[in-house]
Every structure is written in C-alpha cells, then in structure tokens.
Computed example of a mutant assay.
Amino acid sequence: MKVLFLENLPYESDVRVGSHHYAARFAREGHDVLWLSHPISPLHFVRRVKRDLAVRVRAWREGPLQVDGLAWYAPLVALPPADAPLLKSRCVYEGVARLSVPPLSSVLAKAGFASCDVVWLTNPYYAAFARAVHARCRVVRVADESSAFKGVSPVVAQAEADAIRDADVAFAVSAPTLERVRALRPDAVGLPNGVEFEHFARGGDEPPEYAQAPRPRVVYVGATEYWFDADLVAACARAMPHAAFFIIGPASSRVAAVLGSVPNVRLLGPRRYAYLPRYLAHADLGIVPFVRDEMIDAVHPIKVYEYLAAGLPVVATRWTELERMNAPVRLVDRSGFCQAVFEELASPSCPRDARIAYAAANSWDERFAAVKEAVEAVIGTARA
C-alpha cells in the first residue's frame, strides 16, 4: 500500500506523537509511506517561530528524505495559513498546495504518490489538499482539540469538521474528542495514545547531566508551552531544595525566565527520542504540571505511559481525560501538587509492578492492530 501522512511535526522531530508510531509501523510492514509536515513559509525565517525549523528546511531542500524506511517532506508555501489579518482567510488556507514551491502535487507525483491507498490526515490545515488526492481510504485522526490552541485560525474547526464527514474512517484520541467527533459521524472510533513499551522499559546508562545531580530526581519530558505550569514547578523546586528537577524539551522564553534562576532546576532542552529512556530510568518521579483548560481536558498524554513503562511513579494535575484513563498515577489539584510530589518521592502510592503492567497493556502495537483492521475493512470494500 501507499500511505500518505498529512501531519504537524516533521518526521525527524525530537517530539514523537502518535502518527510517528503508526507511520513507522506501516513502513515496517513493507508499505510505502510519505509523511508531509506542516509547511514552512518566508515568515518562519523572519520570526523563527516554528519548532524544528532547520530540519524542516533540510527536508524541503533535499527531500523527500529517507528515514526509518519511509520518506518525509516539508513544503514551502508563499503564504502560511494563520490566525492573522489576510492569512486566516479560507482562500489562503485552501491554497496551501497551489502556493507551494515547488507545487506539492508535483512532489507527490515524483514520489509516486499521485494516488494513494490511504490518506491519513492529522493536521487540519491539509484538509483541502487531502480531498484533492485520489485515495481508496481516507483516515482522519483527531488527536487534539485543535481549535482550542492559541493562535489557530478559526477556519481550522470547519475544515476539520468537513474532513471528518468526508473520511472513510475517523479516529479520536480522547473521550471528550470522541464525543465531539461522534456528533459529526456516529461511527467514529476511539483510538487512545500508547507507548513504545520495550523502548522505555529497557532503561540504559545514566545520562551525563545526572552525574552531579543529587537524588531524588524529578523529571518532566515534553513541550513547555502555555499549558506547562512553570510557576508551579518553581514553587515545588524551591520547597524541595534537596531534589533535582529536570525539564526535557524545548523551553520557551517564559519558562526560561521563571525556572532559569531556580538553583535545583535544570533546563536540558530537547533530547533525542532514542535517549529518553535513560533519563527516565535514572529519575525517581515523573511529573505532568499542566494548567487545566478546554484543550488540556481532551489530552490523552503519551508521557504518562512512557513514565510508567520506565517504572516511575507519576504526579499530575487533574484533568478530564487523565481521570478517565484510570492510570496508576497520583492526580491532584494544583494546590496539592507540591505536597504530592514530596509524598510520592518518600513513598510511592502504587507498586512499581502495577505501573509497568499498565504501560505494557497500552502499547502502540495494540493500537496499530485496530488501525489496520479499520483501514483494511474499507480497502477490502473498495476492492470488491
């Protein structure tokens, strides 16, 4: 099969999301896979606001690049769709393919993807383009409440709704999102996130950044955008000067300003996915200090599975989807977060074996089996 992924992040991003794992598994089974990341534009070179800009530029200049048995590419467009004057119009949004340099249709044709067996849409900005690609099966995977993100064009919500109605298969990652998607199509399928269990369970050597750090060690892995409660982490670190707090992931200027001066907080920046198990294996606690809002309420957190696969106890602020997961995690309101961190470091509330077993039961292999079943049912019908 030929499978086209229309995504947000580059395939070679340090941050790996669900589609990375599905694309890799399609490729591992011998299918031809092409991954398109969110487009770059001249504005990104002026404002440098887009994560992974250097790797995106390389994929545009030299791509499609070959990685992990699949190909990926980052288009360059003249005008990027955005929540800004002139750029948030539907005309600009639907012109992504036409305004790309070189034309995206020619890139696909050259790569052998003028028509596909499966078009897999996660990034709503590609919805109009996805409709123009001939495919036997159209999949929409709704991974987040996209319209709840700051700075997202209001056009996105309508485009995503249209794509959901047009799809052959609609997946939703969280229960709140599934409820919304089923209002558009009752046959939508719940497809939670998962974990590369063996990857995170294997551990590894102690990372060099830990060599001079005392124990206990508290770790956070992931994005530090506006939903990351840097003030809460700073308060906990100051209350526990005997502990070392490690923040792994791109640090925004706001987070650097809040945490950069706290002596026992270390902002490590991004680390390659291949090395993350080492940082978890030699830590004592994983944290998820999120500010609750509409977007967070619908997040099904991959990092929780990864912490648990490494055997870590976890403290997280409480939100709707995380409560529904019923994971062996200490869930607290913001006011009780630091006390919970202190208590879990002293005496974890859940046995290590239970944490690991929960992660093992939620692997990406299990999720991919459900994906294949749904896709093959459509393609089999189309073939008949």
Rank of each mutant, 00 (worst) to 15 (best):
V288T: 06
L34P: 13
V291A: 06
E225S: 11
G204F: 14
A211G: 12
A114V: 10
S115D: 10
N326L: 10
C137H: 02
V77E: 04
R51W: 04
A127G: 03
P216S: 12
G63L: 06
E179C: 05
S37C: 02
L232W: 08
P10D: 04
D52G: 01
R215H: 15
P301G: 06
A109K: 11
V288C: 15
P154K: 12
L312P: 11
A201E: 14
R324W: 03
V133D: 08
A223K: 04
R131V: 12
A256Q: 13
L9P: 00
P42Y: 00
C236I: 05
H242L: 06
E321R: 03
R330G: 01
R138N: 09
I164S: 09
P154A: 15
E294P: 01
I356N: 06
P328G: 07
P348M: 15
V155I: 08
Y220D: 07
D293M: 03
P81C: 10
A243M: 15
G260R: 04
V233C: 09
L34H: 11
S13L: 03
E225I: 05
G286S: 06
P250W: 08
E12H: 08
L108D: 05
R90F: 15
V329T: 13
R271S: 09
A27V: 04
A223Y: 01
H300C: 06
T122F: 02
T317Y: 07
A309R: 07
A130L: 04
K50R: 13
R47E: 07
A257W: 03
V139P: 01
F129C: 09
V218E: 07
T177L: 14
R383W: 13
L104M: 13
W227C: 03
A274E: 15
G63E: 05
A223C: 02
D162H: 10
W120L: 01
E373Y: 02
C236A: 14
V101S: 04
K50F: 00
A167V: 07
I247T: 07
F113I: 10
P10E: 01
A175G: 09
D168R: 06
V3E: 00
A374R: 14
V67E: 15
W60M: 04
I248Y: 11
P103L: 05
I40L: 02
V96M: 13
W364C: 03
D365H: 13
H21I: 07
E323L: 11
E225G: 10
R48W: 00
D144A: 02
L121V: 01
A84Q: 08
T122Y: 06
D365P: 02
Q212E: 13
K303P: 04
R165E: 06
S335K: 14
V288A: 11
S13F: 00
L184E: 14
A188Q: 06
D284M: 13
R58S: 07
V181I: 11
Y273M: 07
V332G: 00
V315K: 01
G112Y: 15
D365L: 06
Y93G: 12
V255L: 07
L104Q: 10
A251W: 02
M295E: 10
N123H: 10
